[in-house]
């Protein structure tokens, strides 16, 4: 595990997401009522910025065309969209959000369904 300190928890308000760019990769970190979850920031449909989406439970709704993605698995919530997104291990330590940027993984569909 390679944890990278990203930002203080208060910089991401409850039920909102914030984008962070690291080289080629852009991630969105969400504060799901005190639980922090990290997902790739580009909707596989048309590249919408998920960080700007409304949070519903543990899912986010893309602000462009309303696709839903689960923030825990990266899986699309409605079956219409086949592609899933990478999610990254995230934890909080001393009020700081840490993300393991090396461990991003897109779940295999059958695995996530099981």
């Amino acid at each position: 595990m390679t944890w990278t300190k990203i930002t203080r928890v208060e910089n991401i308000p409850p039920r909102e997401g914030r984008p962070v760019r690291i080289g080629e990769l852009e991630i969105a970190i969400f504060n799901v009522n005190g639980r922090f979850l990290t997902i790739e920031n580009a909707c596989p449909h048309r590249g919408g910025p998920l960080c700007d989406g409304i949070v519903t439970g543990t899912a986010v709704v893309c602000p462009l065309h309303g696709r839903h993605f689960d923030l825990e698995t990266g899986m699309p919530v409605r079956a219409a969209e086949a592609k899933c997104l990478a999610v990254f291990p995230t934890r909080v330590e001393d009020g700081v959000v840490l993300v393991d940027l090396t461990a991003g993984r897109a779940f295999n569909e059958s695995e996530a369904a099981a």
């Binding site: 300190k5 080289g23 991003g104 897109a106």
Partner: peptide, 27 residues
């Protein structure tokens, strides 16, 4: 306060993580 600003990581990001290729695609 962070509504409009881009969040910058607090520490240097390991080189290995900088490429998007680091995302493991299980499939």
């Amino acid at each position: 306060p962070t509504q409009f600003v881009q969040i910058e990581p607090m520490e240097r990001v390991p080189m290995s993580a900088q490429a998007e290729g680091s995302v493991v695609r299980e499939r």
